[in-house]
């Protein structure tokens, strides 16, 4: 059945109102400062670390994002993988159900717009609000780096850092779509928040612990050669990738470190086996585009997950009664 009129009608109006709500709201303010303060602290620590290691590094500037301190083993990138979902859930958990509880939904939907416009406008506005704060944070970081390290980043470093910014926004999108799905399914914002936060804890803390164990149940555990080891690692990696946080970390570790030539390298390094890879392909850093291509699948995965979750929320919303 063809519907009359455009489903986009009203998206602009919804977007502007929601964005201004986010930007002026107390919640955004609190979440933003939480991220900014912890991020600056993390970067400060990593700057101390970078200054102490005087080794020649052509990509010193990128270390700003990835270097973990000695006392505080937390890099900026790791911090983001942890905090960005929190911000997304914070903005998204009551996007739809609050319209029910405020009893505004039927009034708004009796205006000449489709439900699509309301949902899409809300998603875009929240994502834009997050993107704005991430951009501000990113600029702050670059500025901080310029001041303290005293050397300008190269073009390639800026390009890599930009990719990281964009990927972080996609990563925020996944969690936002998830939070929005729950805000559609559950009428109570508290329930929606709780379920979303539960999933966040599961994926960021429990899944990294359990997924290797589950992977080993399915894959073989006999390791006779390096080949076998790589096989086991791939299965484990496949399982880990169910978590968007794992995808994000993989992308960031490759994009921000030109010396990484395979997505398995950080894993091997963690096992103290980095020499295998390094030995096999010695030398030169990976060109920018090669790095991006290496994790292209993961980037697409993040986008696909966002779309899937959004469509899920859309389907639930379409069939929902407008009455509270």
């Amino acid at each position: 059945m063809r519907r009359e009129g455009s489903p986009w009608r009203g998206v602009g109006a919804v977007f502007l109102k929601e964005l201004s709500d986010h930007l002026t709201g107390a919640r955004m303010f609190v979440l933003e400062w939480l991220v900014v303060l912890t991020a600056v602290a993390a970067v400060y620590v990593s700057i101390q670390q970078i200054k102490n290691t005087s080794a020649e590094d052509p990509f010193l500037f990128l270390r700003l994002f990835t270097q973990a301190g000695e006392q505080v083993p937390l890099s900026f990138a790791t911090l983001l993988s942890f905090l960005v979902p929190l911000v997304s859930i914070g903005l998204g958990f009551d996007l739809v159900n609050s319209e029910h509880s405020r009893r505004t939904l039927s009034r708004i939907l009796s205006q000449p717009i489709y439900r699509d416009a309301l949902l899409f406008g809300k998603f875009l506005a929240a994502l834009t609000a997050i993107a704005i704060s991430l951009l501000a944070l990113w600029l702050l970081l670059i500025g901080l780096g310029l001041f303290t390290l005293g050397l300008p980043p190269s073009g390639e470093e800026i390009a890599r850092a930009l990719v990281m910014l964009v990927v972080t926004i996609f990563y925020a999108g996944v969690w936002l779509a998830l939070a929005m799905l729950f805000s559609t399914i559950f009428r109570s914002p508290a329930t929606a928040a709780l379920v979303a936060l539960g999933l966040w804890l599961f994926f960021t803390i429990l899944w990294p612990i359990f997924s290797p164990w589950m992977a080993d149940i399915f894959g073989s555990r006999d390791i006779a050669s390096a080949e076998d080891l790589l096989g086991v690692l791939s299965v484990r990696q496949g399982f880990a990738r169910v978590s968007p946080s794992a995808l994000f970390s993989e992308i960031v570790s490759v994009v921000l470190d030109p010396s990484v030539r395979s997505t398995q390298q950080p894993m091997l390094a963690a096992l103290g086996l980095a020499l295998i890879e390094r030995g096999a392909i010695p030398g030169a850093p990976l060109p920018f585009l090669q790095s991006v291509l290496l994790v292209w699948g993961q980037i697409v995965g993040l986008i696909a997950a966002t779309i899937l979750l959004f469509v899920g929320g859309y389907v639930v919303f379409q069939r929902q009664e407008v009455r509270a």
Binding site: E4, R9, R107, S110, P112, Y114
Partner: peptide
């Protein structure tokens, strides 16, 4: 059902 926008454009609703 088929033309909701045309209807909602000219109908005011006070829930």
């Amino acid at each position: 059902v088929r033309e909701p926008l045309a209807v909602k454009r000219r109908v005011g609703y006070l829930p």
